[in-house]
Design a protein around this nucleic acid. Structure first.
Ligand code: SF4
Length: 492
RNA sequence: GGCGGC
DNA sequence: GCCGCCAACATA
């Protein structure tokens, strides 16, 4: 039994009970706050994503998470004003990210997953703290449950108890919850069902509330997506919102400035369509389509990404994100994580491997690239004439450009075909400063490097429009509260 | 994917 | 069924 030390802890530890996020803030923020609030939350959410991959047990996970949350999104503060500020940060950051992550299904799914984990963490914490905070939270969130009477409880005792001890049973309250909201618990046979209602013990309410939060957020995200275009046209916060998921992605951001050209789990896609040779593009697209890759594909692409500068952590994240669309995170860790760590020299003999060269990809003893479900190999060498021609066409390459490439391919000059492909997709590369084409066609990473260089020097890069202090939150609020017509697909 | 261990 | 370990190599 815990003694309630009202004096010391109770006041200080009274934390926000307002994290269901029903209503957006109505105050305004400076651009600096806007950005820094969002950053705080991003750090937390990214941490959650990272922790989930580590296969920690419940306590380790909670401890680690608690540390970051206390640092980045503390829900209380030493002084009343500090507390106010922190609550503001929490509330605003949630809605900012809700907007920044609403525009594609991918982003919505990501945010939903991480926010739900954060929500669950806080809710469980709240529950441990007991009655008062919990009911404050429920009131804030506008949640109430239909509690059954003592009489009903006693009369259904045999059905309700399950494996509860008599003591626990006596101490528990039970709630009538609509069947649909309790499918999770029902599926796991943890609650009694009668006449379309599930009878849920107080201790299992967390699961119900989480489900509600999930659908609440999922719906809001879909709505926000419908009105994203309004907000994104804002010259100050528009760019901020659009880049948020690619920004601030660095580990502990000891180095303020993210190095341009640095790949991470969330910007691989960009590089894929702008700077990867056809072979890697093929694997990448296959991965995105199937949410899995055969062994040779994983190896070809994994090592290539490593060579392109993706760190091990990011690589794990990248593949995990994709694979877990069709399997559990647990399954992923069990079957694929080891091999990734091994390629980075973190397992066994601790050898760090380099990527396959073109000749190895073309001639090496790999499994048949034309097999169903395979995406590895070199398209110029391993694809049929017709399918390569079609592929190039689909990528917007036609006319003489395509004919030239096809000619080389039919001539079995695969690497030349590849170099030609680079040439036609990088107009003026030969004359662009700092781009050498020597390696292109010999090694996928050389192709990649040249391409990155090309795009970097081609586009001067315009940036920096640190703004005046203005009213970004109004836009956020308007978008979230009164979404435009049309609805985006909800994340399920 | 191969090899290897239980 | 569970698990560990390996392969690669352009390159300014
Ligand atoms: S030639 Fe090399 S880089 Fe180009 S597609 Fe084939 S394997 Fe990839």
């Amino acid at each position: 039994m815990f003694t309630s030390s009202r004096q010391s802890s109770s006041k200080a530890s009274t934390s926000t009970t307002n994290f269901f996020y029903t209503t957006p803030p109505s105050y305004e923020l400076s651009l600096e706050d806007f950005e820094s609030f969002a950053l705080s939350r991003l750090i937390v959410l990214r941490k959650i994503e990272e922790l989930k991959v580590k296969g920690l047990d419940r306590n380790q996970y909670n401890d680690a998470l608690k540390r970051v949350v206390n640092l980045q999104l503390p829900s209380s503060g030493p002084s009343p004003s500090a507390k106010k500020h922190n609550e503001k940060r929490d509330l605003a950051s949630h809605f900012i990210l809700r907007l920044a992550y609403c525009r594609t299904e991918e982003l919505r799914r990501w945010l939903l997953t991480q926010e739900l984990a954060l929500f669950k963490f806080r809710l469980e914490d709240l529950e441990k703290r007991g009655g008062k905070d919990m009911s404050a939270f429920m009131k804030n969130a506008g949640i109430s449950f239909d509690k059954i009477t003592q009489d009903e409880k006693q009369s259904m005792q045999s059905q309700l108890r399950f494996n509860m001890s008599y003591r626990d049973f006596e101490a528990s309250s039970f709630y009538r919850i609509p069947f649909a909201e309790a499918v999770d618990l029902i599926g796991r046979r943890l609650v009694h069902v009668r006449a379309g209602m599930a009878y849920v013990p107080g201790g299992k309410l967390v699961s119900i509330i989480c489900a509600r939060f999930r659908s609440h957020l999922s719906r809001s995200l879909a709505k926000a997506a419908a009105s994203f275009s309004h907000v994104s046209s804002d010259t100050r916060i528009g760019p901020l919102l659009k880049n948020m998921n690619k920004q601030y992605t660095g580990r502990d951001f000891g180095k303020q400035h993210t190095v341009e050209g640095d790949m991470n789990a969330s910007n691989v896609d960009e590089y894929a369509q702008r700077s990867m040779p056809l072979c890697m593009r093929q694997v990448h697209d296959g991965l995105k389509k199937d949410h899995k890759l055969k062994h040779d594909g994983r190896r070809q692409y994994g090592l290539f990404l490593k060579g392109a500068g993706l760190t091990m952590e990011e690589s794990l994240l990248f593949f995990q994100n994709e694979f877990t669309k069709i399997m559990s995170a647990d399954d992923f860790n069990k079957n694929y994580a080891y091999n990734i760590r091994h390629s980075y020299g973190k397992e066994g003999k601790r050898q760090s491997y380099t990527a396959f060269s073109s000749t190895t990809i073309i001639m090496g003893p790999r499994s048949n690239p034309s097999e169903v479900g395979s995406h590895h190999g070199c398209p110029f060498a391993h694809s049929g004439d017709a399918s390569l021609a079609a592929l190039l066409g689909k990528m917007g390459i036609g006319g003489k450009d395509r004919d030239d490439i096809m000619a080389h391919k039919k001539n079995k000059m695969y690497q030349l075909a590849c170099a030609k492909h680079f040439e036609v997709t990088h107009p003026g590369a030969a004359k662009t400063e700092g781009v050498d084409l020597d390696g292109v066609g010999n090694h996928p990473n050389a192709w990649f490097n040249s391409s990155v260089q090309y795009w970097k020097n081609k586009e001067p890069a315009k940036k920096d429009m640190k703004g005046k202090i203005n009213t970004p939150m109004a836009k956020v609020e308007r978008a979230v509260v009164s979404p435009g017509s049309g609805t985006a697909k909800e994340v399920v």
